[in-house]
Design a protein around this nucleic acid. Structure first.
Length: 589
RNA sequence: CGGGGCGUAGCUUAGCCUGGUAGAGCGCUACGUUCGGGACGUAGAGGUCGUGAGUUCGAAUCUCACCGCCCCGACCA
């Protein structure tokens, strides 16, 4: 039981100017956090209590799923990362820390880095400690601080540079076991978010720099989310836009027959899809081939799309390059022979085809059949280009961005889109890290194999804010029972009356015995201030003790999410409060 | 890193265009009146006007540079 006057909850009437979204404003106004610098936040006592509630729930679900808690350093020797499979990509977001003073190697590679995630730490540990199939599977987790130099920290805790994360790593003897571990975590995640009191949906996701074979994200639907979720309610299909696909191209689509010889025609000044679609040329975007040039690990490659489609850049990750980026015009001309606007992939028109690492075509270009593309000669295009006959395609793939309304890959029903906040991510990693670090085990045939890994993350601090984003009203936060910093607020309107404070203690004790954390507002403030603050900090159950009520022989009980106030006769108050707490706990279990 | 915007008291901000005493509300301190939905009055404390240069007799105000923050894009839990 805490007394407000002895605690520290600095609430604000006005929102700080830098807080744009509701949850960020409420984090600050309700006295949960204060900003230190870009993407850096102090958790004030009330905010820390919410964090503890969330981590405890998370811990219970992880333990329940058989994961084992440990704690790894936040400072990582840079050599470990250099040994790992993704140093080049990961170092972009890692804070470097040269030991003390000027460091021993100023201007060169860092000696230590602040950990953005822990695959590079856990895998060598498991390699050193586990070598027999008898000791597998194992799943280790920690709940700790992560550091990522986000290019653009945003929205308070939503995208911070230092944040709290639960990260887990599973090690199995084979693929089957790894899949089992993966789905055990998927279920644990679902239970965790349900108990947290937040609606989070599992969607198929891109694996990104993490690598691995498949992955799900847990998304909290919210307008301010950074991700687009493509879904169909009826079929249950849901995927991050980066990963989402559609049944736009029929599986049994036959190659179109050529419609005539390839024909070059002059298109002076035409450098965009829209210009070619306009008069005098009048080639619809759906009949154009779009040719994009990227550089993958130093070598150029081409991506072909329909003129009307957009590239979903994340899908290029499937091509296996460690790093890729759009090519510059200076890089394009020597290879293709023309500048952007007149590019194409028609056999025989490329200046230096041997320089290419590949030509990757989106399936949807097969819908074009015969179309128009750049001639690799500034100011000229080619028509009657046939997909099968004329294009030098290394392989087809899914590279286009799905649009709402396209047919669901499962049911054919139209796909929809909504925004979401990514609060959790699970990956089936495979052997990417175990091979690199030599984390192998010996099986019962005395054969050694790399362990099959999975990794799992929950953004604890982000989940905290997602809860607020999803659960608030015009007056303030509406904490779900299980992650509320306190579950019961005893609002004493006349704390100078000894009998009022004594009653508050009794009710608070009754609520505590029933399993609630209790805060007593004993401040010498006017009632209006107390009620406003109570709504702002959003404690689920409010008990009000006032001089008036005491004379009538009642106290008041009010749920934060409800409008009505229930008057409880003093004689019944303790039992009714205990019962209310019991019901709330049961409902939130 | 590209594009846009903003830095004035702890917070929200006016003043800047058109250079000349830095103002208000909230919060804070003291006293009084109040006391069931962010009360009122009186008196106070609190400001290197982000930093540095420049123009000028004189700069919060004009110019330049730098720093910080916010928003939009690419990355992520």
């Amino acid at each position: 039981m805490k007394r407000w006057s002895q605690f520290f909850i600095p609430t604000l009437k006005e929102s700080p100017a830098d807080a744009e979204i509701a949850s960020h404003r409420l984090l600050v106004r309700a006295g949960l956090v204060r900003r230190l610098g870009g993407g850096l936040y102090t958790y004030l006592p009330l905010g820390l209590r919410a964090v503890h509630k969330i981590t405890q729930l998370c811990r219970e679900e992880m333990d329940g799923a058989g994961a084992i808690e440990l704690w790894m350093p936040h400072l990582h020797p840079a050599e470990l990362w250099a040994q790992g499979p993704r140093w080049a990509a990961a170092r972009e977001i890692m804070f470097r820390a040269d030991s003390a003073g000027d460091g021993r190697r100023p201007g060169r590679e860092p000696e230590v880095v602040l950990g953005p995630t822990h695959e590079e730490i856990i895998t060598p540990l498991v390699k050193a400690e586990i070598s027999s199939y008898r000791d597998l599977p194992k799943n280790f987790y920690q709940i700790a601080t992560k550091f990522r130099n986000e290019i653009r920290p945003r929205y308070g805790l939503m995208r911070a540079r230092e944040f709290i994360m639960m990260d887990a790593y599973s090690f199995d003897t084979g693929d089957e076991g790894a899949v089992k571990s993966y789905f055990a975590m998927k279920e644990a995640y679902a239970r965790f978010f349900r108990r947290l009191g937040v609606q989070a949906i599992a969607v198929e996701a891109d694996t990104g720099v993490m690598g691995g074979s498949f992955s799900h994200e847990f998304m909290v639907p919210a307008e301010i989310g950074d991700d687009d979720v493509i879904y169909n309610e009826a079929s249950g299909y849901a995927a991050n836009r980066e990963k989402a696909t559609s049944a736009l191209v029929p599986a049994d689509l036959a190659d179109a027959a050529p419609a005539g010889a390839v024909e070059k025609f002059a298109t002076p000044g035409v450098t965009t899809i829209a210009q070619l679609a306009a008069e005098p040329h009048g080639v619809p975007a759906e009949q154009q081939f779009k040719t994009l040039v990227y550089i993958g690990d130093g070598r150029p490659f081409l991506v072909l799309l329909r003129g009307c489609d957009e590239l979903e850049e994340a899908k290029l990750g499937a091509l296996g390059f460690t790093l890729f980026r759009p090519a510059t015009p200076e890089e394009i001309v020597p290879v293709l022979g023309a500048r952007p606007g007149s590019l194409g992939a028609v056999k025989g028109t490329l200046r230096d085809p041997s320089a290419l690492a590949g030509v990757f075509a989106d399936h949807a270009i097969r819908l074009i059949g015969n179309g128009t593309t750049g001639a690799n000669e500034d100011g000229f295009h080619l028509r009657h280009v046939n997909v099968a006959r004329d294009l030098a395609i290394t392989r087809f793939g899914d590279f286009r961005r799905v649009r709402p309304g396209e047919p669901d890959p499962r049911s054919g029903q139209p796909l929809q889109v909504r925004r979401g906040i990514e609060v959790g991510h699970i990956f089936k990693l495979g052997t990417k890290y175990s091979e690199k670090f030599g984390a192998v085990f010996t099986d019962d045939q005395k054969q050694t194999h790399p362990m099959v890994m999975g990794c799992y993350g929950i953004g604890i601090s982000r989940a905290l804010q997602a809860v607020i984003e999803q659960s608030h009203d015009a007056d303030g936060i509406r904490w779900p029972w299980n992650c509320a910093p306190f579950q019961v607020l005893v609002c004493v309107l006349d704390p100078q009356l000894p009998e009022a404070m004594e009653l508050a203690e009794r009710l608070g004790t009754a609520a505590e015995r029933a399993g609630a954390d209790v805060l007593i507002d004993d401040r010498a403030e006017r009632p209006g201030v107390k009620f406003k603050d109570a709504d702002l900090i959003g404690i689920p159950l409010r008990l009000t003790i006032g001089g008036k009520g005491l004379k009538e022989g009642v106290i008041e009980l009010k749920w934060r999410h409800a409008k009505d106030v229930v008057k409880l006769p003093l004689a019944e108050a303790e039992a009714r409060v205990a019962a209310a707490v019991g019901e709330a706990r049961a409902a939130a279990a």
